[in-house]
Structures are given as structure tokens and as C-alpha cells.
């Protein structure tokens, strides 16, 4: 199997430097919408990944728009143009907090619940059992490659488990496993240090493995 990450990186362009971003921020502040569009293009995956941590896929797209709209309106308050990544990261987290607060009673997962015919297996005999939160849980800890229904089942379950992890692990893993960003890119886009991302990836993945196997 080819390395998905490498393919994705080629498809979406290489990492840019904070200095490039700063020039775009300065231009955007002066009203250059194309500069802000470029910032959007560079950071949309990071924002999307953060927002996916606690909102439905339907809501994520609207929230992404809200985050960048907020950033556009408040761009003048950003003191360090090169810190745009950390700033957008913070805005995305705040948007998510708002969203969760407004939907406290809304059970959001999974995004695409399978229908009954192709739905979650509930019998342990087919390798899955339903967990307490209603999501299938692998019995035996194995990942079983098979058809599209199983893929969706695994995706829903993996996403549900990731969403239960502490924030630092949750975000890093979503950016790595869902958005296809690599470690250095996650660090550059979120403003975290590479060391922090390394540790979060490692510990988060350990925790994810144990919970998927549990």
C-alpha cells in the first residue's frame, strides 16, 4: 500500500514558512482578499481537524467558515503576523467550545450512522460488539480490512474513540490521521513545538491503540 501521507503531501503542496504567512497577513490587513484566501487555503485543514474533534461533519464546514470569518474581522488584533497559525488554532478551539456549549444535549456521533441493513454489527460473533456509547468495538483488537461498510464502521468507531481522548492528543491525531498532515506540518500550522507534537502523537497513538483494543 502506498504511503497515504506522502501522496497527500504532494497533492496539497509543501509547507510554507511563517515569514510567508506574515507577508500574507500584512497584505490581508490592507484589504487584500486574495492574500486571506491563500491563508485560508494553507490553514483550512488544521482548522477543520481541530473542529472535527467535537462537532459533526455537517457542522464542521459551517464552523470552518465561522472561524475564518472571525479571523478576517479580527485580523487587526493579531500583533505578530507570523503567529497566525497559533492564533487561528486558538480561534478554532474557541469556536468549538461555543459549539459544544450550544449543543450540549445533542448527541452528534457518528456523522453518518449506517442504516439498519448495513448497520453496526452487534453480535460478538462477527468480530464487533456495541460499546456503551453505542459504537462498535473490536473484539480481539484486530483491524479487519474488508468492504466499504466495514471501513465506515471502523472509521466511525475510530473517530468516536479519538474524540474521547484528551484535547492535545485528540487534535494531533485528527490532524495526522484524518487531515493527512505530517508532524512538522502540524507543528508549523498550530504553533506548537515539534517536540510537543512528537510527544502528543506518540502518547496519543498509544492511548488510541489501547482503547481500540480494549
Amino acid at each position: 500500500m502506498p504511503h497515504l501521507l506522502a501522496d497527500h503531501r504532494v497533492a496539497r503542496g509543501d509547507l510554507t514558512s511563517p515569514a510567508d504567512d506574515a507577508a500574507l497577513v500584512i497584505a490581508a490587513r490592507a484589504g487584500d482578499r486574495s492574500a486571506f484566501d491563500e491563508l485560508y487555503r494553507r490553514y483550512v485543514r488544521m482548522v477543520h481537524g481541530v473542529l472535527l474533534g467535537r462537532s459533526t461533519r455537517d457542522d464542521v464546514d459551517d464552523l470552518v467558515q465561522d472561524v475564518f470569518l472571525t479571523a478576517w474581522r479580527r485580523l487587526s488584533t493579531l500583533r505578530e503576523p507570523a503567529a497566525i497559525g497559533g492564533w487561528l488554532h486558538a480561534i478554532a478551539r474557541h469556536a468549538l467550545v461555543d459549539h459544544v456549549r450550544q449543543h450540549r444535549d445533542h448527541v452528534a456521533l457518528p456523522d453518518d450512522p449506517p442504516d439498519k441493513s448495513g448497520g453496526y454489527a452487534t453480535s460478538a460473533s462477527d468480530g464487533y460488539a456495541t460499546s456503551a456509547c453505542g459504537f462498535p468495538r473490536a473484539s480481539g483488537g484486530g483491524w479487519r480490512p474488508s468492504g466499504p461498510d466495514t471501513d465506515r464502521l471502523e472509521a466511525d468507531r475510530a473517530l468516536a474513540v479519538i474524540r474521547q481522548l484528551p484535547e492535545a492528543y485528540r487534535e494531533t491525531l485528527l490532524l495526522r490521521l484524518v487531515e493527512g498532515m505530517n508532524g512538522p506540518e502540524i507543528a508549523a500550522r498550530t504553533g506548537l513545538t515539534p517536540d510537543s507534537v512528537r510527544v502528543n502523537l506518540c502518547r496519543g497513538m498509544k492511548l488510541l491503540r489501547s482503547r481500540l483494543d480494549g
Partner: peptide, 8 residues
Amino acid sequence: TVLVRYRS
């Protein structure tokens, strides 16, 4: 592979 469905 399976989570790519949630990608932006």
C-alpha cells in the same frame, strides 16, 4: 485509510 472519509 478509513478516516480519510472525514478529511476536509
